[in-house]
Amino acid sequence: MVNRWARLLADTLFPQQCLLCRLPSASHLPLCGCCAAQLVPNHPCCPCCALPLATPGGGLCSACTQRPPALDRVLAPYVYEPCLGYLIGQWKFQRQRHLSGLLAELWLAAVDPPQDRDLLLPVPMHWRRLLQRGFNQATLLARALQHCDSALQRLPVAERTLRRPRAVPAQSTLTAQQRLHNLRDAFSLRAPVQGRRIALVDDVMTTGATAETIARLLKDAGADDVQLWCIARTPPPAT
């Protein structure tokens, strides 16, 4: 009750402005309802890798059918498009860390988080990139999800379970084939994960090379189930 009244007072004294249309957002978030409604839901999508699909009810995508991934499930409720891309870009590259809460609330508004996870595992950054950016956005998102959903607060955020010992070029600058080669030996485990049901947390899934590499490492170490929780999935290339 106290938090609700404090939020109402803050909204009255310091009204939020929508980051997309620049009008008052009429909420505690920097996104108005009209602009939020313009975000593209990722439906229909592959029930395994969350690749956006053209028609509903099509089952697994061809890639998952031909080669089942190590990931057991991907929860990516939005399609990565310019509006959401702008919000994520402001968060990551303009260091607007406060947008972690907005992105977490958008995710939770579209997803009913599975209650069977044992831990939240942020995708790690190499220490040089972490030093340059000043934060790991995956860790911020994991903690914001906990802050916004009391059911997730029982889960440890396992920041030290996985490390990235080798600096590699940014995945966004590479082709799909180069991404796979780029990630060879890029991650290592620092804690046991045998029998654990893991929610791997990241911002956006593109080709899935990073998440798949980590999932295989976790499964080889005995993890029971690995899901990827991310904000958005990029659409397939236009043909």
Rank of each mutant, 00 (worst) to 15 (best):
R190H: 07
T139P: 02
Y78W: 13
R164L: 04
R97A: 10
A37W: 08
R160T: 15
L140T: 09
D116L: 15
A110D: 01
Q38R: 15
T161P: 00
M125E: 02
R97L: 13
Q16R: 13
H126S: 01
A158G: 06
A36V: 05
V157T: 15
A151D: 06
T210Q: 02
K92W: 03
T207S: 14
S100T: 02
C64F: 11
I198T: 05
W127D: 00
A158S: 09
C34K: 10
V40C: 10
L39K: 01
L121C: 03
T239L: 06
Q227M: 12
P235S: 15
H28Q: 13
A176Q: 05
M205I: 11
Q38Y: 08
P165Q: 04
W229R: 01
A167M: 09
K219W: 12
L102G: 01
T139I: 03
A63Y: 06
L183Q: 14
C48Q: 14
G33R: 10
H43G: 01
P169K: 14
L155T: 02
P69T: 03
Q16E: 13
A138N: 11
D118I: 08
Q227V: 00
C148V: 05
P68E: 05
D118G: 07
A151I: 02
V201H: 03
V226A: 01
P77C: 09
M205S: 07
H147L: 15
V168K: 12
S188P: 00
E212A: 02
V74C: 15
P56R: 15
